[in-house]
């Protein structure tokens, strides 16, 4: 693959960021192999939380791939995200077992309480709701993942209670901190 001209138009990303070095090291570890693009994107998303244009450009240059190619691959897969994550994230499994056990009711109530649909972030940027198929925990359906913690046998009400608790804890922490 050729490096397209446009790539050099982008300003080089800030290299002081140690997370960039992590990405660079990953590219190097894979021997600058272009096949390793998905692995590198995983590592980049892990480090930064999401993939923005600067980061994608950086990866494209490091791997000597056109930016369009890198973006094309990243946007194909559900897992890669181009938006900064919200403070808290609530993942609702919408796999078949959770569908049967009423995951939709959880999503409906989340929308009613916080005004967020799956894939959206609340207006204050504090809560995002995502749907996901499927963490593979069907015996305990319906399943939630709140901030990385896997929770089984949830109800719409318990979900709301948990999230309200989370948001309230933050508030308290903030009031104490300053």
């Amino acid at each position: 693959m050729l490096v397209t001209k446009q790539q050099s138009d982008y300003a080089p990303p800030a290299t002081e960021d140690p997370r960039m070095d992590e990405v660079a090291r990953a590219v190097k570890r894979f021997g600058y192999q272009q096949d390793a693009l998905i692995e590198v994107l995983h590592i980049a998303q892990r480090a930064f939380g999401y993939l923005d244009e600067t980061l994608l450009t950086y990866i494209a240059r490091q791997m000597k791939l056109p930016l369009g190619w890198v973006y094309g691959v990243a946007s194909f897969y559900h897992f890669f995200s181009f938006e900064p994550p919200a403070e808290h994230n609530c993942v609702v499994c919408t796999g078949t077992a959770c569908y049967v056990e009423g995951a939709q009711k959880i999503l409906d109530l989340l929308e009613k309480e916080f005004g967020v649909k799956p894939g959206q972030v609340s207006a204050d940027g504090r809560l995002s709701v995502t749907d996901f198929r499927c963490p593979g925990s069907c015996g305990q359906a319906p399943i939630l993942v709140i901030d990385g913690e896997l929770l089984g046998r949830e109800t719409p009400e318990s979900t709301i209670a948990r999230i309200k608790q989370l948001l309230a804890n933050d508030k308290q922490a903030k009031e104490v901190a300053p």
Binding site: G95, R133, G136, C138
Partner: peptide, 12 residues
């Protein structure tokens, strides 16, 4: 890959 929503044999 096991993308079938509601299956987790392979991963297990």
């Amino acid at each position: 890959d096991e993308g079938d929503p509601g299956a987790y044999m392979d991963r297990t």
